[in-house]
Amino acid sequence: MDEPAAKIQVSLRVPADLVEAYDTMAKAMERDRSWMMLRALKQYLESEEGSDTLAEAEGIAALDRGEGVDFDTVMDEADAIIAAAEARLARKAG
């Protein structure tokens, strides 16, 4: 069975009307406010905007660690693939 994820206490200032909305939803769903807010945070990370931002940050970190591939190397490989495909087509047409 998987171990539960470590939890960290965080604090932030939230507009009162937003807290009231979460309290209303939590009461309707018979959950607590923390559960509702955690669910919203997880949904944001799974959304297109959240997942794109996270992937971009992870990509930048990978580049910072030197895990990237040189652009010219990628273009040389792409050119070689295209040339091979064109040569195959020319042989077939030939």
Rank of each mutant, 00 (worst) to 15 (best):
L54F: 13
T53D: 04
R39Y: 02
I60Q: 08
P15F: 11
A55V: 07
K27S: 14
D32P: 03
E49Q: 13
E46T: 05
D32L: 09
D23Y: 01
L45T: 08
G59H: 13
E48I: 11
D23K: 15
A40I: 14
Y44D: 03
R31C: 02
R33A: 01
L45D: 07
D17F: 05
S34W: 06
E58M: 15
E20D: 13
P15A: 12
D32K: 01
E20S: 10
M37I: 15
G50D: 04
L38G: 10
V19K: 13
T24Q: 08
D17N: 11
A28N: 08
P15C: 00
M36A: 12
A57C: 01
W35I: 04
M37P: 03
M37Q: 10
Y22S: 00
M36S: 03
M36T: 12
P15T: 04
V19F: 02
A28Q: 09
S34E: 11
Y22I: 08
M29V: 03
L18T: 15
L18N: 07
E20W: 07
E56V: 02
W35E: 12
L18G: 02
M36N: 01
A16R: 15
S51G: 00
D52M: 11
E30M: 10
L41S: 07
T53C: 06
S47W: 08
A26S: 05
A40M: 14
L18Y: 01
A55W: 03
M29S: 08
E56Q: 10
L54A: 11
K42T: 04
D52K: 13
Y22R: 07
A55E: 07
D23P: 01
L38M: 10
E48Y: 10
L45A: 03
L41H: 01
A28K: 07
S34N: 13
E48M: 04
M29Y: 09
R31V: 06
A57V: 05
M25A: 15
R33G: 01
